[in-house]
Amino acid sequence: MKPDLKVKIGKLKLKNPVMVASGTFGSGEEYKDLLDLNKIGGIVTKSITLKPREGNAPPRIVETPSGMLNSIGLQNDGVEAFIKEKIPFLKKIRPAVIVSIAAHSVNDYGRLAERLDGVSRVDAIEINISCPNVKGGLEFSREPFSAFEVVNAVRRKTKKTVIAKLSPNVTDIAAIAAAAEEAGADAVSLVNTFTGMAVDVDTKRPVLGNIVGGLSGPAIKPVALRMVWEVFKRVKVPVIGMGGIMESEDALEFMIAGASAVQVGTANFVNPRAAAEIAVGIEAYMRGNKIKNMKGLIGCLKV
């Protein structure tokens, strides 16, 4: 029997639990020639802000052992350009569309949610309260109260599914997740990148133009996994896991530890077909282990 990979997060319906993470896949169109986008459960688009942002000074990325640092700095053309230029393509494909939003103030998060609320094809909003690369972007998810405020401001402006994307650069991520849940988030996604740094010993300068950046890739997977497990035990809303997922076995680890769905990020750079292949791998695992649906998989960790 064919296992059922469908999963529901708030009102968001995913055909399979594999999404592509914000910032790693543009708005999907960039990858249209490289894989069948319809094999992906959902596309989380690059974070947008109210006004265009030009991003950080280069260099913006550098490879590190089993990972990479980035400091893009939320370069984007703003919400209006997104609606006008990116939504038309997204209307032509089938994966769920989750729009990532970022802002400097609680008020602006609310305005973004309000603007997107009436836009068809926006199936959910992921609140990026954890971008490590802009001043102010991270602080909202550093403290339970500010995380609560942002999520609450968004919640009051939209009926769409709201996902709070959390920072791992905190002492107690479960406390932040609980605050997001209390504020009305339909789900939490974690983890965003870990703040990190690289130094060029020849020039004695930081490698990144922004000095510090966010670490992603396989290097962060064990820590991300531990955080997903901690959050899963604490909240009732679905947890979306991410952090260094390269293949289906990585994704399965997250799901067994409690993730209702996963996001694939850095792996898209290494293999543009990664997300689609991971979905196939999860299905094969479920078939092999006689797991009929996602209920049988999510959080089945034996401890």
Binding site: T24, P58, P59, N70
Partner: peptide
Amino acid sequence: ENIACGVGACLGCAIE
């Protein structure tokens, strides 16, 4: 420049 995606998605290879 250092390249990650190569397809214009990650915005990592910016120059001024």
